[in-house]
């Protein structure tokens, strides 16, 4: 009998307090509890983590790379959102 494909999970780890959880990889597990334990055993063998999230891969909705232009390029021209857009004389000091 063919083994059922076990679901894929994405693993996110907080390496230090104060840092955000970061995607580190993925794994297969039948359910969330086993996924969390597997994430611990696979991705934190060298003390890499203080906190783990596992998320079913199927729960992630991603932007389409072919829509990169529509999605992200409009922001590129809004340079007035950056502090360097504004002229403040040097004598005013750090602002």
């Amino acid at each position: 009998m063919a083994t059922p494909n076990s679901p894929l999970w994405e693993v996110f780890i907080r390496s230090r307090n104060g840092l955000a959880h970061k995607h580190v990889g993925s794994l297969h597990a039948a359910d969330a509890t086993l996924a969390l334990q597997a994430a611990r055993d696979i991705y934190t063998r060298r003390g890499e983590g203080l906190s783990i999230w596992v998320v079913p891969s199927s729960a992630i909705t991603a932007s389409d790379p072919s829509e990169k232009g529509m999605m992200f390029e409009p922001a590129e021209s809004k340079i007035y959102r950056h502090p360097t857009f504004y002229d403040v004389p040097d004598e005013v000091g750090h602002m």
Binding site: S6, L27, H28, A29, L34, Q37, A38, D41, I42, R45
Partner: peptide, 11 residues
């Protein structure tokens, strides 16, 4: 039985 479990047993 699974690679994930290989990791756990070794740990």
């Amino acid at each position: 039985p699974a690679m994930e479990e290989d990791m756990a047993l070794a740990n």
